[in-house]
Structures are given as structure tokens and as C-alpha cells.
Simulated assay, not measured.
Amino acid sequence: MLVVDDSAVIRQLITVNLELEGLEVEQCDDGVEALDRIGTWRPDVVTLDVMMPRLGGFEVVERLRSDPVTAAIPVVMVTGRAAAADLARGDELGVEAYLVKPFEPTELVATVLRLLPDGAS
């Protein structure tokens, strides 16, 4: 499980809630760092913010989807961007779920658990 957000508070909130479910969580604070990390380790699910320095969430998803090795990694967008165009862009890119901040932690956990491959943690 990889949590990517430029806000340390949001990263920690997501991480704590997922770890309480027994998941192993790693964190990155921007898209460039996330792609580097995914290059050496394949997370079961990625949560991504849209607005981040250096490389935003939509661009990260585009790169993941364009690589056959990472194309199937489920992505949950967790963002304050809730305009119809943002939701449409996420859908167009094949994002599995789109949660708007402020999100309900129980909804985030349920979404991630639903996207995990059978037997993954």
C-alpha cells in the first residue's frame, strides 16, 4: 500500500487508518518520489492526491497506466478537487475510486480493502 500526498497530516491520517486494518503502508510526498518508489516495489493499491509539487496525481496515473508492469495497480484519488472535470479525468484515466477531502476514514479503508487483491495485506 502506497500513500502519496504532499500534506504530512493527510498522509499520516490515511496511514494510521490503514495500518489499523493490518496493512503495510509506505508514504511519498509527491508524484516523482512515488514513481521512483513504484519502480522498485509494487504496491497492492496507491492513494494519490491530485495537486502535488513536481508531479501531480493525474500525471502519475497516466504514467502508471502507460507501463504494462504498473498498469493494473489500483489507484484511489484522495483530493480536494471535486469539479466534474476532475472526476471525469479520473474516470478517463481508469482510476478505481475518487474520494473528496475531507473524506470519511471508514470510507477510505473500505475502498482500499475492496481493491486489494485476494490475500494481500
Rank of each mutant, 00 (worst) to 15 (best):
residue 82 A to N: 14
residue 15 T to V: 04
residue 83 A to Y: 12
residue 111 T to G: 11
residue 1 M to N: 03
residue 51 M to W: 05
residue 105 P to S: 10
residue 35 L to W: 11
residue 93 L to M: 09
residue 40 T to M: 09
residue 24 E to C: 05
residue 118 D to L: 14
residue 114 R to W: 06
residue 81 R to C: 14
residue 118 D to N: 12
residue 109 V to K: 09
residue 19 E to R: 10
residue 78 V to E: 10
residue 67 D to N: 15
residue 30 D to H: 15
residue 81 R to H: 09
residue 77 M to Y: 05
residue 46 V to Y: 02
residue 34 A to R: 05
residue 34 A to D: 11
residue 111 T to F: 12
residue 83 A to Q: 15
residue 12 Q to V: 05
residue 43 P to F: 12
residue 34 A to Y: 09
residue 27 Q to V: 08
residue 18 L to A: 14
residue 40 T to R: 14
residue 7 S to H: 04
residue 84 A to L: 04
residue 61 V to P: 08
residue 28 C to P: 05
residue 86 D to T: 06
residue 1 M to A: 01
residue 121 S to E: 06
residue 103 F to W: 06
residue 5 D to S: 03
residue 7 S to D: 14
residue 5 D to A: 06
residue 61 V to F: 07
residue 121 S to H: 10
residue 104 E to M: 02
residue 34 A to Q: 05
residue 3 V to S: 00
residue 113 L to Y: 00
residue 65 R to H: 13
residue 24 E to Q: 10
residue 106 T to N: 12
residue 68 P to E: 15
residue 104 E to S: 04
residue 101 K to N: 14
residue 54 R to Q: 07
residue 111 T to M: 10
residue 2 L to I: 07
residue 104 E to A: 06
residue 7 S to N: 10
residue 107 E to T: 14
residue 71 A to G: 05
residue 116 L to N: 09
residue 90 G to W: 02
residue 70 T to V: 07
residue 112 V to P: 01
residue 2 L to V: 13
residue 61 V to N: 06
residue 82 A to V: 02
residue 90 G to E: 05
residue 59 E to Q: 14
